[in-house]
Amino acid sequence: MKGVGHKADEQKRIIVQAVGARVDMDYGGSWKENEDRRNTMVFIGKDIDSLHIDQLLNELLYINTDKVS
């Protein structure tokens, strides 16, 4: 898996790479002022259970209820 993540209190990208059980994360370059800051991940492999991955990632979502009217 490879990906770029956005964390609300960080100005830099979070770079994620994983192979098997090994996961590496580090900061990348800063986001541009008007750049669309979305989390993007690519999973590469055989017989990947995409529904299971989707469920696991959804469990990690944080919903900021302070901004909900």
Score class of each variant (00 low, 15 high):
53 I>V: 05
50 S>R: 11
54 D>F: 07
58 N>C: 02
65 T>Q: 13
47 D>K: 14
1 M>E: 07
22 R>V: 10
56 L>C: 08
59 E>L: 06
7 K>E: 00
16 V>W: 01
28 G>W: 02
30 S>L: 01
7 K>A: 03
14 I>W: 12
24 D>N: 12
49 D>C: 05
49 D>L: 09
3 G>H: 07
30 S>T: 06
4 V>F: 10
41 M>T: 09
24 D>Q: 13
15 I>E: 15
45 G>P: 03
61 L>K: 15
68 V>A: 14
42 V>D: 10
50 S>P: 01
32 K>E: 14
33 E>P: 06
34 N>M: 03
11 Q>A: 09
1 M>K: 07
27 Y>H: 13
57 L>T: 09
60 L>H: 03
11 Q>M: 10
48 I>D: 08
15 I>H: 06
13 R>M: 02
55 Q>G: 03
19 V>E: 15
64 N>W: 01
63 I>D: 12
5 G>V: 00
56 L>K: 13
50 S>D: 05
10 E>Y: 03
25 M>P: 00
11 Q>R: 08
30 S>W: 00
30 S>A: 08
2 K>E: 10
40 T>L: 13
53 I>T: 04
44 I>Q: 14
31 W>L: 07
44 I>N: 14
36 D>S: 15
54 D>G: 06
62 Y>H: 08
36 D>C: 02
64 N>H: 05
19 V>F: 05
7 K>W: 01
